[in-house]
């Protein structure tokens, strides 16, 4: 019965990254971009002080308050930067360290393995132990009790390894603090969002290895 069900449902996997994501696949609001008006007037309204010369994407938490001050929601979720890549491509193992997130970033990572996005076709896999991992994925604002387990996990990973911080709490502290994960560990890649959309996570992950 499951076979018939699957055949009837057809192929629903997104064609990303070979094609741009459609509006049906990414219907959310995405990052805001300044279109008109004085940006200085908007800088007081942002709760995480993300607006100065321009909007700092890594601090934005999508509270939508700046919409009344000349910002437009673009629907773009692909914001990531990578400083150091892995020296190989394919069969990359990811180890998740939840350093104090609100559970939304965890849920988005869980959604990466569903048939719509299917992380495994791009060569990424989740591993339960840091000994087999290439990427350490950190989410959430680092709480006091999670500093030591996070550092222990980093110690336990073999070379070559990189650290990816995803979500505004990890990259910049978000609404819960002023500093992100880079206070404790060197961060090699950052992905923005609150929480980062699966397409955004894929965008960031694909940049971390040599294929792209």
């Amino acid at each position: 019965m499951w076979v018939i069900k699957g055949l009837r449902k057809g192929i629903i996997t997104t064609k990303y990254p070979d094609e741009k994501p459609t509006k049906d696949e990414v219907p959310e609001i995405g990052v805001p971009v300044h279109r008109h008006g004085d940006i200085k007037a908007a800088s007081g309204v942002c709760p995480t002080d993300a607006i100065s010369e321009a909007l700092d994407f890594y601090k934005c938490i999508f509270c939508q308050r700046c919409e009344d001050y000349g910002f437009e929601m673009t629907g773009n979720v692909e914001i990531a930067e990578v400083n150091r890549k892995l020296p190989f491509s394919g069969s990359v193992h990811i180890f998740l360290v939840d350093a104090g997130s609100c559970n939304a970033c965890n849920r988005e990572l869980d959604m990466l393995t569903n048939p719509y996005y299917d992380l495994h076709r791009l060569g990424f896999f989740f591993t339960p132990t840091p000994r087999h991992a290439d990427i350490m994925f950190v989410i959430g604002k680092v709480t006091d009790r999670m500093v030591e387990p996070m550092l222990k996990a980093y110690e336990a990973m073999p070379e070559p390894k990189i650290v990816v911080a995803a979500g505004s709490c990890a990259t910049s502290g978000g609404i819960f603090g002023n500093e992100g994960v880079d206070r404790y560990i060197n961060v090699d890649a950052k992905i923005s969002g609150c929480p980062p959309s699966p397409i955004g996570l894929l965008y960031g992950l694909l940049k971390t290895y040599r294929r792209r």
């Binding site: 939840d98 869980d110 339960p128």
Partner: peptide
């Protein structure tokens, strides 16, 4: 840090 629980 455990993969079974998916949270800390």
């Amino acid at each position: 840090v455990s993969s079974g629980l998916w949270e800390s």
